[in-house]
């Protein structure tokens, strides 16, 4: 009970900070929006090729802003020297990881939902009940993304080249998440084969469970202060 409460306190701190300034939220949302627009110019307007590629475009637009947010989540703490404070308080490091993970996850899901609305409008899909499946995909995919991402963000937080280093480390590892999310979205929007959708959801869940557990265990090693 105590640990759950601690995790929530840690996550709430980050989310409240973000809610008050809304700085990261607006910039990352705008960045994602730009990606959606740029891809429109890469294809003929209204062509079938664009429609076929739409799921991939959606997840590209979610991926890059996500990395920015992950990098920020430890950078603010480092700059303000508040990480020291947290590490000195009687909180286990694995709980610090869980709090950071939770904050990143909530942030990403919130951004992703807004992006999906913009995506449906820009790509001319319709708002229907099956979008709930995309919500599920977003919940699962951003959980895996934040699990590995939070761990790696903590790892690179002390390195000068962290802005490039984080995606270099993160993208190869989350290849399964990207594949599952893009293909799952394709099933929802274009192909409608539920048995394959279920498979991708299973893969996402397996990835989430494995890497949440691993990151929770090894997080102890990656913060040196």
């Amino acid at each position: 009970m105590r640990s759950l409460k601690l995790i929530w306190i840690l996550a709430e701190k980050d989310l409240r900070l973000e809610y008050r300034s809304r700085q990261a939220f607006l910039t990352t949302f705008f960045f994602a929006l730009l990606i959606l627009v740029v891809f429109q110019f890469a294809f003929d307007p209204g062509s079938t090729a664009l429609r076929e590629a739409a799921p991939g475009v959606l997840w590209t637009a979610l991926l890059f802003p996500g990395v920015i947010q992950l990098n920020r989540s430890f950078q603010l703490e480092k700059e303000e020297g508040t990480l020291h404070g947290i590490l000195l308080s009687p909180v286990e490091r694995s709980l610090l990881f869980s709090g950071k993970f939770l904050a990143n996850w909530v942030f990403l899901v919130a951004i992703d939902l807004l992006i999906v609305v913009a995506f449906v409008i820009f790509f001319n899909f319709s708002f229907e009940a099956k979008l709930a499946w995309i919500l599920l995909l977003i919940l699962l995919a951003s959980a895996g993304f934040s699990a590995v991402g939070t761990l790696f963000a903590a790892m690179v937080s002390g390195i000068r080249t962290r802005e490039v280093l984080l995606p270099i480390l993160l993208f190869p590892i989350i290849v399964p998440t990207i594949l599952a999310a893009v293909n799952g979205t394709q099933e929802v929007l274009l192909r409608h084969q539920p048995q394959f959708l279920v498979r991708w959801i299973q893969l996402l869940s397996a990835f989430d469970i494995i890497f949440l557990a691993v990151a929770f265990i090894v997080f102890d090693y990656v913060l040196d202060e």
């Binding site: 590892i173 290849v175 990835f207 494995i210 691993v214």
Partner: peptide, 17 residues
Amino acid sequence: VFGIIGFLDVPIVWMSI
């Protein structure tokens, strides 16, 4: 840590592809 995570990822990558 990265070496361990990278290796654990291999079977999942294989399955997904």
